[in-house]
Amino acid sequence: MLLHGGSRYLVLITVSLGFICVLLLVFIILQHITITAERDLIKSYKNTVEEFNQTTNSLQDNYTDLMTKKHKLQNSLNSLSQKKLELEIRVKDLTAEKDQLQRSSDSLSQKKLELETRVISLSEELKKEQSKRG
C-alpha cells in the first residue's frame, strides 16, 4: 500500500511538475508575445518621433524661409513708402512751381496786354501828331 501510495504521490508530483512546466511555457510564450508587441510599439513610436522631428524640421525651415521673405517684403515696403513720400514731396514742389509759373504767365500776359494797349495808344497819338503836322 505504501508503494502504491508513494506511486500516487510520484504521479501527483509528476503531474504537478508537468502542470508547472506548462504554466511556465505559457508564461514564457505570453512574455515573448508581450515583449514582441512592446518592441513593435517602440519601433512605431520611434518612427512616429522621427516623422514628427522631420515635420518639425521642415516646418522650422519653412518658418525661417517665410520670415526671410517677410523681412524682404518689409524692407521693400519701407523702400516703396520712402519713395512714395519723396514723390509726394516732389509733386507738391512741382505743383508749387507750376502755380508760380502760372502766376508769372498771368502777370506777363497782363503786362503784354498793357504794353499792347500802350503801343496802340502811342500809335494813335503818333498818327494824330503826324496828321496835325501834315
Rank of each mutant, 00 (worst) to 15 (best):
Met1Gly: 13
Met1Asn: 09
Arg8Glu: 00
Val11Ile: 06
Leu12Asp: 07
Leu12Ala: 10
Leu12His: 07
Thr14Gln: 05
Val22Trp: 02
Leu23Cys: 02
Leu24His: 09
Val26Asp: 07
Ile29Asn: 09
Ile29His: 06
Leu30Asp: 09
Gln31Met: 05
Ile33Trp: 11
Ile33His: 07
Ile35Glu: 12
Ile35Met: 07
Thr36Gly: 09
Glu38Ser: 02
Arg39Asn: 15
Asp40Ile: 14
Ile42Asn: 03
Ser44Thr: 12
Thr48Gly: 10
Thr48Leu: 13
Val49Cys: 02
Phe52Val: 07
Gln54Phe: 08
Gln54Pro: 01
Gln54Ile: 09
Gln54His: 12
Thr56His: 11
Asn57Met: 03
Asn57His: 04
Ser58Glu: 11
Leu59Tyr: 14
Gln60Met: 12
Gln60Glu: 13
Asn62Arg: 12
Asp65Tyr: 11
Lys70Gln: 08
Lys70Leu: 12
Leu73Gly: 03
Gln74Gly: 01
Leu77Asp: 04
Asn78Val: 05
Asn78Gly: 12
Leu80Ile: 15
Gln82Glu: 15
Gln82Cys: 05
Lys83Met: 08
Lys84His: 11
Leu87Asn: 03
Ile89Pro: 00
Ile89Asp: 04
Arg90Phe: 00
Leu94Arg: 10
Thr95Pro: 01
Asp99Pro: 01
Leu101Gln: 10
Ser104Tyr: 02
Asp106Leu: 09
Ser109Glu: 04
Gln110Ser: 15
Lys111Cys: 01
Lys112Tyr: 03
Leu113Tyr: 13
Glu114Thr: 07
Leu115Ser: 13
Ser121Phe: 02
Leu122Thr: 03
Ser123His: 14
Glu124Gln: 14
Glu125Val: 07
Leu126Glu: 07
Glu129Thr: 14
Gly134Phe: 03
Gly134Pro: 00
